[in-house]
């Protein structure tokens, strides 16, 4: 498999404080890659750099063989990179359908408003939100709002989908449904990079897992390898005292 995204020596300083330090990893085309780590490990900062919200202090982001470091945030959907936000940002005064339309209209497909509405309806069907299309986000529960975030990102027709903790706060059944959805998305050829805390979901979804701690990448590998890594266990569960 070819590399879709390559992160090289990514570093981000906030006023001298190192939030992310020298992180490198790759995302294979067509794969699902997970990023795990405790709170404040710098996962979201990495995401923000990959999606152009933040500019790295040093290091580079290579996407489809092209250096895209420092590109303006609004250019990413055109290149086929879409993201969701950890803190949900539904467009409050727009219906569920319109939320997704705004994704469709400015995404890679360059649709006009009418086509975008049709495409958005398709996406809603796919993500199981179609019967809620005329509701406003505030009228839906958290699982659906999270789904809406994914639907809006998906509507931009991404090659690479960045999901920032979209399963946090879901109960086990809902998590399973979400896992199923992401597998379906992945089967259609979309590469996924996700941040997640729910290990069960990570284990069943990801081919590769990157573990971060204190802004550094400490290891990567298959979910089994990572979960049996003594250092990872130490970070997650604390050191066994002897």
């Amino acid at each position: 498999m070819a590399e879709l995204l390559e992160i090289k020596n990514l570093t981000k300083n906030f006023h001298g404080l190192k939030a992310v330090s020298d992180v490198s990893f790759t995302v294979e085309k067509g794969s699902i890659t997970g990023m795990i780590g405790s709170n404040g490990a710098g996962k979201t900062t990495v995401f923000n750099m990959i999606s152009g919200v933040l500019t790295p202090t040093s290091g580079s982001i290579i996407y489809q063989g092209k250096d895209i470091t420092g590109t303006k945030a609004c250019k990413y959907t055109g290149m086929g990179i879409a993201r969701t936000f950890q803190i949900m940002k539904p467009l409050r005064n727009m219906t569920v359908l319109d939320n997704v339309v705004s994704g469709a209209i400015f995404g890679r497909k360059q649709l006009n408003a009418v086509q975008a509405r049709e495409y958005a309806a398709e996406i809603l069907e796919f993500t199981g939100l179609y019967d809620k299309k005329d509701l406003y986000p505030k009228d839906m529960g958290t699982p659906y709002k999270k789904r809406l975030e994914v639907a809006r990102a998906l509507a931009t027709d991404p090659e690479l989908l960045l999901l920032d903790e979209v399963m946090a706060g879901l109960n086990p059944t809902e998590t399973d449904e979400a896992v199923e959805l992401f597998q379906k998305i992945n089967e259609q050829g979309t590469t996924i990079l996700l941040i997640e805390h729910i290990m069960r979901a990570v284990a069943s979804l990801c081919q590769k897992v990157v573990v971060m701690h204190h802004g550094e990448k400490i290891t990567e590998g298959t979910p089994e390898q990572v979960m049996n890594d003594p250092y990872v266990i130490e970070i997650y569960l604390g050191k066994e005292e002897d």
């Binding site: 999606s51 152009g52 919200v53 945030a73 609004c74 250019k75 990413y76 959907t77 055109g78 879409a82 993201r83 936000f85 940002k89 539904p90 467009l91 409050r92 005064n93 727009m94 319109d98 339309v101 705004s102 994704g103 209209i105 400015f106 995404g107 408003a113 975008a116 809006r152 990102a153 509507a155 931009t156």
Partner: peptide, 18 residues
């Protein structure tokens, strides 16, 4: 759609390519 998305959330607007 661009304007309304900006109105609701500028960061989201950026994220969908506006």
């Amino acid at each position: 759609y661009a304007l309304k998305t900006i109105r609701e959330d500028e960061e989201t607007a950026n994220a969908v390519g506006i």
